[in-house]
């Protein structure tokens, strides 16, 4: 595995995402909802960023646009210099397919496939994927690989989802409330898995949460409120998820 792929490039950390004046307006009938009102941000290679904010602050919208699930209404977002705002459905599908790993609050596993097959569903279409077994080993589920989702606990399901996300060796890992549906102890296990992936594989990781305590494990913490970035906080040292409590 090429762990140092994105880290020691040249002078200073490389910019993975850059947003400029990014806006998003949802039109709901006559009503216009301004979800993002002008976001200027950079995300650097290999860092772990936590997006914090109350519901409705725009953090999911931002993540969805970064992940190519949604398109911006205005402004610009680039991925490794490429303009995502101008990409069509075909390019966005390809972008998600080869570069992005997603982890969702409700896991979104395929119920008819076993754990390992849920990972394989991604590795089969990726460019240089891990072996599904290795991806499951990273999240500590090597012994549960032949279980169907209905036979796994919530935490285990979420770890399968993480294995699925990392198995394609993505350049970025986007996680939307990965612990939102889990109890605290299980949440810690999931966060440990994410932290390990970020540390060992050097994958740029963005985690959305409304749980302030999780912010301790990040390199940087971005606060959003009402569609705007309010503060950006840089942690001097990252806490281990095991030390987090909520």
């Amino acid at each position: 595995m090429d762990i140092t792929r994105l880290q020691n490039d040249s002078s200073g950390p490389r910019i993975v995402f850059r947003t400029r004046c990014l806006t998003k307006v949802y039109e709901m009938g006559a009503l216009k909802v301004h979800a993002l009102r002008g976001i200027d941000l950079e995300f650097y290679a290999g860092e772990l960023v936590v997006l914090l904010g109350p519901s409705g602050s725009g953090k999911s919208t931002l993540l969805n646009i970064l992940g190519g699930l949604d398109t911006a209404s205005g402004g610009q977002v680039t991925y490794l210099g490429k303009d995502l705002t101008r990409a069509g459905d075909r390019e966005l599908t390809e972008y998600r397919r080869y570069h992005v790993g997603f982890v969702f609050q409700f896991y979104n596993l395929i119920p008819s496939l076993t754990a390992i097959e849920n990972v394989a569903v991604v590795t089969e279409i990726a460019n240089k994927p891990m072996k599904p077994e290795d991806a499951l080993a990273v999240v500590g589920l090597a012994d549960r690989q032949d279980h169907f989702p209905s036979q796994l606990s919530g935490g285990e399901q979420q770890r399968v989802a993480i294995a699925r996300a990392i198995s394609k060796n993505p350049d970025v890992l986007l996680c939307d409330e990965p612990t939102g549906a889990l109890d605290s102890a299980t949440g810690v296990v999931v966060l440990e898995a994410l932290e390990r992936v970020n540390r060992e594989l050097g994958t740029t990781t963005v985690i959305i949460t409304h749980n302030v305590d999780i912010a301790g494990m990040a390199d940087r913490v971005v606060h959003l409120s009402n569609g705007l970035v309010t503060t950006i906080h840089k942690n001097t040292s990252r806490k281990s998820p095991a030390d987090l409590h909520w």
């Binding site: 599908t93 397919r97 992005v100 979104n108």
Partner: peptide
């Protein structure tokens, strides 16, 4: 839901 999840994971409409 399952199909949309697959779309998110990078599966094309055809797939």
């Amino acid at each position: 839901r399952e199909l949309a999840s697959l779309r998110v994971l990078g599966y094309t409409r055809g797939e």
